[in-house]
């Protein structure tokens, strides 16, 4: 559509930070296959081989494929490894006891995809080597394609990040990082803060302060802050919602916007706080949500949130340019 061509960067979608498994490149493994010499015997051969030599690790592979070089031939997987003793032990026994094996060639090595494809791209690469089964996750596809949000949502995301940028700029300290916690259902800002770690308290990273501002709004809070760079704003909105005095449990249902990628402490604080989504601007080499770690997809952790990066990245990056 034409109306967006004038401002392509403005409407750029945030980039999802997904588990590494969605970005991994093709890994191949050597296995044994046979050529079926008499195609009329195919179903008998397949039945017999599937019974005696089931696939475990490589169950994502189709058992049989048409030989790419000789179109009238079929290849069948007989072992999901490539070890000499397969031929001397298992295979020779099978051939002795089943006449049907005279219709297949001696097993030989081919390279096949070692892991099931999770994305369309991984699938396209994998099937160059061997046909695979693939169940496309449409949500992952949209996240990878950057077609996850509609134009209205992108506008809203940018608006919230602009709020984080402006609170970052208001800091009296050299380190310019801003954080805003939003309730996306009502599109209201619950808390916002700049980074105070260079003041009196080294743990007062922008994210830690914003989390505590939410607690303050809910009638708790651990830090009494007089700093003008931190504000809990929506006490009424937050607490009157659903008619109870406490508001939601911690940050459940809330989104965080932060100009720089959170550190490991802040990223884990967000796990403890049950945040729903995190949007950040510029990456940090030691960051815990895509750069050094991907804590939000770390196995063994009891709460997972979604992470998007690159929101107004150039603006956010500029905030950091005066620090080293």
């Amino acid at each position: 559509k034409k109306q967006f061509t004038g401002e392509p960067t403005l409407m750029k979608q945030p980039e999802a930070v997904l588990d590494d498994v969605y970005y991994r490149s093709l890994e191949l493994v050597d296995i044994f296959v046979c050529t079926i010499k008499d195609k009329k015997k195919t179903s008998e051969i397949v039945k017999n081989i599937c019974k005696h030599l089931p696939l475990e690790k490589l169950s994502h592979l189709k058992r049989v494929r048409s030989n790419t070089n000789q179109v009238d031939e079929l290849q069948i997987i007989v072992a999901e490894n490539y070890e000499e003793d397969f031929l001397t032990n298992i295979w020779s026994d099978l051939c002795e006891n089943n006449a049907v094996y005279c219709h297949v060639s001696k097993p030989y090595m081919v390279k096949v995809p070692a892991l099931p494809p999770l994305t369309r791209q991984q699938y396209n690469n994998a099937v160059q080597y061997w046909p695979c089964s693939f169940h496309e996750d449409k949500r992952i596809t949209r996240l990878l394609n950057r077609s996850f949000f509609n134009a209205e949502e992108v506008k809203c995301i940018h608006k919230n990040m602009e709020e984080a940028i402006s609170v970052a700029k208001s800091s009296v300290y050299k380190l310019h990082i801003g954080a805003v916690i939003v309730d996306p259902k009502s599109d209201t800002i619950i808390a916002k803060s700049c980074d105070l770690r260079q003041g009196k308290h080294p743990l007062q990273h922008a994210v830690m302060v914003a989390i505590d501002q939410v607690a303050t709004v809910q009638g708790g809070g651990m830090w009494q802050l007089s700093d003008k760079c931190s504000n809990n704003l929506q006490k009424e909105t937050c607490c009157k919602e659903k008619g109870d005095k406490t508001g939601p449990y911690l940050c459940t249902g809330y989104d965080l916007y932060v100009t720089a990628e959170p550190c490991i402490m802040c990223a884990m604080a967000l796990v403890h706080s049950r945040i729903s989504r995190v949007f950040y601007g510029s990456p940090h080499p030691e960051g815990a949500l895509g750069s050094k770690y991907k804590l939000h997809v770390q196995p063994g952790i009891n709460h997972h949130y979604e992470v998007f990066c690159g929101v107004l990245q150039d603006h956010c990056h500029k905030l950091m340019s005066d620090i080293t």
Binding site: I211, D212, A215, M222, L250, H272, R274
Partner: peptide, 26 residues
């Protein structure tokens, strides 16, 4: 641990202890 009273899930004993050291120092 002061998670319940502060409604802040980051209020682990270690964080409380750090706050106390800061206060003690001041």
């Amino acid at each position: 641990n002061e998670v319940n009273e502060t409604k802040n899930a980051t209020r682990h004993a270690e964080i409380v202890a750090i706050d106390k050291v800061l206060k003690f120092s001041e």
